[in-house]
Simulated assay, not measured.
Amino acid sequence: MARSEYLTTPVDAVVSRMRALDAALPERDGVAVFNRVYLAVTEEVDRCLDSGLFTDPRAAIALDVRFAGRYLAAVDAAGADRRPPACWRPLFQLRRHPGVRPLQFALAGINAHIGHDLALAVVDTCRELDCEPAELEDEFDRVGDLLVALEERIRDELMPGPDLLQIADPLTHLLGSWSLERARDATWSAARALWTLRRFEDVAEEFTERLDAAVGFAGRMLLTPLPD
């Protein structure tokens, strides 16, 4: 069954905004590198929606739009000279650094978006749809699977190679300390914790701030400038 116009429009709007960013940003800009990765994920989510691969399309769309909205809000904040969330600051601060490689930019963006934004997007979506996190788990897993598959692809495309050089390259050792699958598992736990804490606003706010700071610290490590 085809999706209704109501369901189609929000994801299409997200894709259009990301395509506009892709056209406007310099190719080597760190935010542009991540944006291309995220655009590919969002387009794949849209194809999965069209193919009926999500158990609950309405929930998948709500989660996708809430999730993307946090990244786009960070872009808007940086563009208006406001401080984006701590998880995004390293990417915006180092986006033009000549010693940071494209793969680092891509994974730092994924780290910020998965490690922080996705947990909050799950909570936002639960509030919007009046549901529990467990009811979004299938959609969460499907989006996570798409990101894992894409991460493997971009590592292959952006790593320096051949294999012998990969082993010796400092980038291999730096990025070997971070795993998207582990980050995704931690994010699901964080989302469930935030949902449980929603009645205790001060505790939830403190938890969110510390999550944001911790993810930002990991992002700064991922963006360590490296020698050629």
Rank of each mutant, 00 (worst) to 15 (best):
M1P: 13
A2N: 11
E5T: 15
L7A: 11
T9L: 13
P10V: 13
P10N: 13
A13E: 13
S16Q: 15
R17F: 09
M18L: 15
A20V: 05
L21Q: 12
A23G: 15
A23E: 13
A24D: 15
A24H: 10
P26R: 14
P26F: 09
R28Q: 14
G30N: 09
G30H: 08
V33H: 02
Y38M: 11
V41A: 11
V41N: 09
T42V: 15
V45F: 02
V45R: 08
V45E: 08
V45T: 12
D46H: 10
C48M: 09
D50W: 04
S51V: 00
G52M: 04
L53A: 11
F54P: 02
T55W: 03
R58Y: 07
A59S: 14
A60W: 10
A60L: 11
A62G: 08
D64S: 15
R66F: 13
R70A: 06
Y71T: 05
D76M: 06
G79S: 13
D81E: 14
R82Y: 05
R83C: 05
R83K: 14
P85K: 04
W88D: 12
L91Q: 06
F92W: 10
L94G: 08
R95N: 13
R96H: 12
R96F: 09
R96T: 14
H97A: 09
G99M: 07
R101N: 02
P102E: 11
A106W: 01
A106F: 03
L107C: 06
A112R: 05
A112T: 04
H113Y: 03
H113K: 04
I114P: 01
I114N: 05
H116G: 03
V122R: 06
D124S: 07
E128T: 12
D130A: 05
D130R: 01
C131H: 00
A134T: 02
A134G: 06
E135C: 00
E137C: 01
D138S: 10
E139S: 04
E139Y: 01
F140L: 06
D141G: 03
R142W: 01
L146W: 06
L147R: 10
A149W: 01
A149N: 02
A149R: 13
L150H: 12
E151P: 00
R155F: 04
L158P: 02
M159V: 00
G161F: 09
G161A: 08
P162C: 02
P162F: 03
D163I: 08
D163G: 06
L164M: 07
Q166C: 07
A168L: 14
D169L: 07
P170S: 11
P170A: 13
T172K: 09
H173P: 03
W178N: 03
R182K: 03
A183G: 10
D185E: 07
A186E: 04
A186W: 00
A186F: 02
T187R: 00
T187V: 01
A190C: 02
R192A: 01
L197I: 05
R198A: 07
R199K: 10
A204F: 00
E205F: 08
E205V: 09
E206M: 06
L211M: 15
L211C: 06
L211P: 04
D212P: 03
A213S: 15
G219L: 10
M221N: 12
M221A: 15
L222Y: 04
L223S: 06
P225V: 10
L226S: 06
P227Q: 07
D228C: 08
